[in-house]
Amino acid sequence: MWTAIILSAVSMTLIVAARYAATSGLFAAITGRVKPGYHAKLGPQIRREIGWSLASAAIYGIPAGVVAWGWQERGWTQIYTGWNDYPLWHLALAPLLYLFAHDTWFYWTHRWMHEPRLFRIAHAVHHASRPPTAWAAMSFHPWEALTGAIVIPLLVFVIPIHVAMLGVVLLVMTVMGVTNHMGWEMFPRRLVHSRLGGWLITASHHQRHHEEYKCNYGLYFRFWDRLCGTDRGLSERI
């Protein structure tokens, strides 16, 4: 049993690392074409980002691997595979619930990480990326990575979700984590400045967090920032 659990954890760590490398590498390449020279003087910073991110991949991968083993071998979780196991409307609802729950957890833990002592101990690693790049999405101190690594593994025990929709959640989490750190806005201006865009977080919004620190703490949505008065709008630099 323990061998199978360890193999599952190692496999999931490799998957998380490969997903990070592929996604960040893709958007770093796009950045190189859209903004030539943006990364030219950031070599040492990018190497640090990759190092911290690969360490984070293990911290994310281990609990995910244990949960994956428990799902397949013991049926521990609420993950399901049959399209008719739940009403079809639940297919769309479940990812939204996951994203909102993850966003809520991220907002409050992220804001907590900006308390001076915790910032010095852990969150300063992430903010050492000046400017942030596509490689910085998982550049966390291990203590901070741990706070993020437990969310989805815990949610699968609580909220039923089809395995394909769980894949959608992980895709959104990965892509938004990377694109929000690129240092330039890849989404159309008409979306970013639209009524819908006013509730979504893109690079323009998150960049301001990296500029001013004490604002714009959200991950996917601006709901908590707006409700708590920490939304300072979009960066004027990108």
Rank of each mutant, 00 (worst) to 15 (best):
M1D: 09
I6S: 12
L7C: 12
A9I: 07
S11C: 09
M12W: 08
R19S: 14
Y20H: 02
Y20F: 08
A22Q: 07
A22Y: 12
L26G: 00
A28T: 05
T31F: 11
R33A: 11
V34T: 12
K35I: 13
P36T: 05
P36F: 04
G37H: 13
G37A: 00
H39E: 10
H39K: 04
H39V: 08
A40E: 12
A40G: 06
K41M: 15
P44H: 12
P44C: 04
R47W: 14
R47A: 13
G51L: 06
L54N: 10
A55F: 14
A57M: 01
P63C: 11
P63D: 07
A64D: 07
A64I: 07
G65F: 03
G65Y: 02
V66W: 14
V66F: 14
V67W: 01
R74M: 14
G75W: 04
G75E: 02
I79A: 00
T81R: 12
P87I: 05
L88Y: 10
A92D: 15
L93S: 14
L97N: 04
L97A: 09
L99F: 15
L99Q: 12
F100K: 09
D103Q: 03
H110K: 08
H110T: 10
W112G: 13
H114V: 01
E115K: 13
P116R: 11
L118F: 12
F119C: 07
F119P: 11
I121K: 11
H123M: 02
H127E: 08
A128L: 15
A128V: 05
S129N: 13
P131M: 06
T133N: 13
W135Q: 05
A137I: 09
A137Q: 15
S139V: 03
W143T: 06
E144H: 11
E144N: 14
T147I: 07
T147M: 06
A149V: 01
I152A: 12
P160G: 01
V163R: 03
M165D: 02
V168H: 02
V169W: 03
L171A: 15
M173W: 09
T174D: 10
V175Q: 07
M182H: 14
G183H: 08
M186Q: 08
F187T: 07
P188R: 02
R190Y: 09
R190P: 04
L191F: 15
V192S: 07
S194K: 00
I201V: 13
T202F: 15
T202R: 00
R208F: 14
H209Q: 02
E212L: 14
E212F: 00
N216L: 01
Y217E: 00
G218H: 15
L219N: 08
R226S: 10
R226L: 14
E236I: 05
E236G: 05
R237N: 05
